[in-house]
């Protein structure tokens, strides 16, 4: 079985097909994914800046890390659930998307970053607060976290702009007509009827499996 076949089998699972085709659930889950960036991603950024000694400097590090821990955990769970729904339901498009692949690698790096600094920083905040100044390891922790999370954010956005090399397959084009077509090619300024016509023209003549 090829990666393409496996991906197609995954996104063809009943509830994932329903989800993909739902005009309401799909954007709702996508918005929730984005709202999590706002609420909990923002908390990660603030923690990182505190570790770098840039923001919240009058607030103890232990208070920042312990106080926001539960929220970041809730955020991560909701975020991953939404992300899985979005990716698995369109696995045909995602599996070969370079930005998606890089995002998954950087997501793994974020996990490794957390593990690497868990003992020395995240579970050691009270001891760091007693030090006369922020140790280098805390700053390194904040900086690496900032880089990986901003990277994940940007890669996530770039997934929508991926253009497969060579001839695009029909399924991809049909999907792109809905919302993911590169912007400058989007026939948005035309009349609705013309837009539909323009979209239809781009689908190759032979579209087996559609």
């Amino acid at each position: 079985m090829s990666a393409a076949e496996i991906s197609h089998a995954i996104q063809s699972i009943g509830f994932l097909t329903d989800f993909r085709e739902s005009s309401l659930m799909y954007p709702v889950i996508m918005s929730t994914h984005l709202a999590c960036i706002a609420l909990f991603g923002g908390m990660i950024l603030m923690t990182d800046l505190r570790l770098l000694g840039i923001s919240l400097t009058r607030v103890p590090l232990a208070d920042v890390i312990d106080g926001l821990r539960i929220w970041k955990r809730i955020g991560l769970v909701v975020m991953i659930f939404c992300g899985l729904m979005l990716a698995l339901s369109e696995m045909d498009k995602y599996y070969a998307n370079t930005y998606f692949q890089i995002k998954m690698v950087v997501l793994l790096l974020a996990g490794l970053q957390h593990l690497a600094f868990r003992k020395s920083v995240y579970n050691n905040a009270a001891a760091i607060d007693k030090m006369p100044e922020l140790p280098g390891v805390a700053k390194l922790c904040g900086l690496t976290s900032l880089i990986v999370w901003i990277g994940i954010l940007c890669l996530g956005r770039w997934i929508a702009y991926y253009e497969a090399p060579g001839k695009p397959d029909a399924a991809q084009l049909v999907g792109s007509v809905r919302q993911e077509m590169p912007r400058q090619k989007m026939p948005r300024h035309a009349e609705p009827g013309v837009a539909v016509e323009a979209a239809r023209v781009q689908v190759p003549a032979a579209t087996p499996g559609l």
Binding site: I37, A38, L39, F40, G41, G42, M43, I44, L45, M46, L68, W71, L153
Partner: peptide, 10 residues
């Protein structure tokens, strides 16, 4: 907006 909304959320 992660910055602005995130800080308000804190």
């Amino acid at each position: 907006f992660a910055f602005s909304v995130g800080t308000i959320a804190v």
